[in-house]
């Protein structure tokens, strides 16, 4: 337990020494919020059921943070640790191998929470972000979504031959998905056909799942099942694909 705590603390500190990864998880979503907020403001709109544009964008940005960490930060970090022999060195200690993986998961949960907290603080400070009613169900929903994407990140780390490949493939999957899923811009401004295509993407379901809870306090069962299904598939696949060296 002492080792796991120490390893997690170390991992967190190392995250803060990687400015680029830090930018995309912590700063970029806040910058987008301020950019679009300065254009559209956050006045209550009738066609948004009394919510403003910024209110609507927050669940999308949460999806952006989870997606970026799951598809980029985790696979690149783990593949790099494997390429460099860092996992090999850790395995040559009495440390339980599960601790290495848990340290990574806890670290990335903390990073996600930090990114979301910054968004929340910026939203409340600059745009009078409307506090969601069902916050008690939103936190478990975000955690479930995060675990789901993280498990895909572990699969990606195992399948990709090198850290460079993990980065290239992670970006190729992530970036189109950010725009089609409603993470970077709201789905309602997209043509209907694009919205339909978006429904085939896992990140869309994270956005819908969080958005429905956030704005309507309603549980979208389809999205819930997609998120759970991805988590189960990710956990099973990562068991077979993960490599220590």
């Amino acid at each position: 337990m002492k080792a796991l705590l120490k390893l997690t603390k170390m991992e967190l500190q190392l995250q803060f020494r990687e400015p680029i990864a830090l930018f995309f998880t912590l700063a970029f979503p806040v910058m987008l919020m301020i950019l679009f907020g300065s254009i559209y403001g956050n006045e209550a709109e009738a066609f948004l059921d009394g919510y403003g544009q910024v209110d609507l964008s927050v669940p999308g940005y949460i999806g952006m943070i989870i997606g970026t960490i799951g598809l980029l930060n985790i696979p690149v970090t783990l593949a790099n640790y494997r390429d460099q022999g860092i996992l090999r060195r850790l395995r040559a200690t009495p440390l339980q191998s599960g601790s290495v993986l848990w340290a990574q998961v806890i670290t990335q949960v903390v990073m996600s929470a930090a990114g979301i907290a910054l968004l929340y603080i910026a939203g409340v400070s600059f745009y009078n972000l409307r506090i969601p009613t069902g916050i008690g169900s939103i936190i478990p929903a975000i955690l479930l979504s995060a675990f789901s994407f993280f498990s895909v990140g572990f699969v990606l780390a195992g399948v990709m031959p090198t850290a460079r490949a993990a980065q290239a493939v992670g970006m190729a999957i992530l970036y189109p998905m950010l725009f089609l899923s409603g993470a970077a811009m709201p789905r309602f401004i997209m043509p209907e056909i694009v919205q339909k295509i978006g429904l085939a993407l896992p990140l869309t379901h994270v956005v819908i799942f969080v958005e429905d809870l956030w704005l309507k306090s309603s549980l979208n069962m389809v999205s819930l099942f997609v998120v759970i299904g991805m988590l189960v598939a990710g956990l099973i696949l990562s068991r077979f694909t993960f490599r220590w060296e």
């Binding site: 990687e18 460099q84 022999g85 860092i86 009495p94």
Partner: peptide, 17 residues
């Protein structure tokens, strides 16, 4: 593992540690 010490080939620690 508690009683042996190991320096392995192709093993390392994170570059920013």
């Amino acid at each position: 593992g508690n009683r042996i010490g190991i320096q392995l080939q192709h093993a390392s620690i994170p570059s920013r540690m």
